[in-house]
Design a binder for these strands. Structure first.
Length: 429
RNA sequence: GGCGCCUUGGCCGAGUGGUUAGGCAGCGGCCUGCAAAGCCGUUUACAGCAGUUCGAAUCUGCUAGGCGCCUCCA
């Protein structure tokens, strides 16, 4: 399998199966309900793990929770830890309801502070970082490759994060921030005094704590390339660690013409979207676009995804056909080529229209959509109504039969007539 | 100002030199008491201009438009 790598800007071949594929995908900062854009890296990460496992790899997914951050302090003055814990719960609940299972590990920054402190100490010892006034900064000038991941030229980078007189260079970034008692109600003791980790160092520390100094794939949103991931590589490679082999950045989800983001305010939460459209439509929606490209979220695109979901599900109410086992190779080939889910979706539709139901079921399973193959059993009262309708139709009492059909619809069941008084009951969504 | 991505038919979205992507929607038909589902048929393409080539949606250049990052951001 090959995947597009941001660092080399090319398709990179994965080591051949079987073997370990260790994936680290950046997770959310927990201070509010996550929006549907936040779900994209999660979904892609889970699908990738699923596909890699299906093709013989020992794939592991680590997805971090950033529960130390200015946003959290700002959103809950004096009660940041409580908000972070609550929002972590929401995130686990919302992503859990996508029905894709859970990552292998979900490390939290607050539980990794000792590893982070240790990492910073090593950077100071090696001359790549320096302590100043209770803060610790990474010395960007000490790492010649800085800017290579994002393609930034150092002399063109605008002023870095918040300017500070303590920095040697304005582009240096904080690894450790001294506690500000007025606004920051959580802190940890460190060799540099009370404080808390910077954002970028947590990922380097947690990824390496779990995977060691080298792993195969690092994922996250395209908006994290600079400065977040640039800083991560700098920290880890400054210590001589290979770090990630492939940088897999997913495209942004757009809503109302621009990136969905809390700061713009054009958000729909995962919760709302699941409630309105159902998990299967949400997953089909993500399937329709290449993982690297932007995807437009709108009532129209969601409705189309829901219609496709129905087409796929309806296939299981029809008669199956002979299986063409060779068909699987086509499906595998498109996924192995940069995880082309739109092409895979076309294959699923092909199987749906030709009645290759066993292949279709297997294909859907890769994406957590095997539920589309399940036929819900109608409760006795629904079957009773259906039988009454069969009788009414036999008696050519169409007024009654139409009324019964409406009644079934109101109970969430669609009745499809078939020749000879037979019928199929399908659960509406 | 710097770095990068994108522009395919009503909508979404594949396709990297010569062959129907696929889906949704539309239209006509079959089926049905009427529907639904399904099936058959069918309309609308490659932003613009110039170039390379026997031949370009596919390569090159320019123009126009859109998006992301450079500040927290999946």
């Amino acid at each position: 399998m090959r995947l597009y790598d941001t660092y080399t800007r090319s398709l990179v071949e994965l080591p051949s199966a079987p073997g370990p594929i260790r994936m680290y995908v950046c997770g959310p900062t927990v201070y509010a309900r996550a929006h549907i854009g936040n779900a994209r890296p999660f979904v892609i990460g889970m699908w990738l793990r699923s596909w890699l496992r299906a093709t013989g790899y020992d794939a592991q997914l680590v997805h971090n929770i950033t529960d130390i951050n200015d946003k959290i302090y700002d959103a809950a003055p004096g009660a940041s830890a409580g908000l972070a814990a609550r929002a972590t719960g929401w995130y686990l609940e919302d992503t859990g309801d996508l029905g894709l299972g859970m990552p292998d590990r979900l490390p939290k920054a607050t539980e990794s502070v000792p590893q982070i402190v240790h990492f910073i100490e090593e950077l100071i010892e090696s001359g790549h970082a320096y302590a100043a006034g209770g803060d610790v900064y990474f010395r960007v000038a000490s790492f010649p490759d800085y800017g290579r991941l994002s393609g930034q030229k150092l002399d063109q980078v605008e002023q870095g994060e918040e300017p500070s007189a303590l920095k040697e260079d304005p582009r240096d970034f904080a690894l450790w921030k001294a506690n500000k008692p007025a606004t920051e109600d959580t802190w940890w003791d460190s060799p540099w005094g009370r404080g808390r980790p910077g954002w970028h160092i947590e990922c380097s520390a947690m990824a390496e704590e779990i995977f060691g100094p080298a792993f195969e794939i690092h994922g996250g949103g395209l908006d994290l390339v600079f400065p977040h991931h640039e800083n991560e590589v700098a920290q880890s490679r400054a210590l001589g660690h290979p770090f990630a082999q492939i940088w897999a950045h997913n495209g942004m989800l757009r809503f109302t013409g621009e990136k969905m983001s809390k700061s713009v305010g054009n958000v729909a939460t995962i919760r709302e979207t699941l409630d309105e459209w159902g998990r299967e439509a949400v997953l089909v929606f993500f399937l329709t676009a290449s993982w690297r490209k932007p995807i437009d979220f709108s009532p129209e695109t969601m409705a189309q995804a829901a219609a496709r979901r129905d087409t796929l599900r309806n296939a299981f109410t029809l008669a199956g056909a002979e299986h063409d086992e060779a068909g699987w190779a086509v499906f595998a080939a498109v996924l192995d080529d940069d995880f082309d889910t739109p092409a895979a979706l076309a294959v699923l539709h092909e199987w749906a229209s030709t009645g290759q139901l066993e292949l279709l079921r297997r294909g859907l399973q890769v994406f957590g959509l095997e539920s589309l193959a399940e036929r819900a059993e109608a409760p006795a009262e629904v079957v009773e109504l259906a039988e009454q309708r069969v009788a009414a139709r036999a008696a050519r009492d169409f007024e009654t039969s139409d009324r019964l059909r409406d009644e079934l619809g109101a109970r969430g069941w669609q009745m499809r007539d078939e020749p000879g008084g037979a019928y199929t009951l399908v659960r509406d969504t």
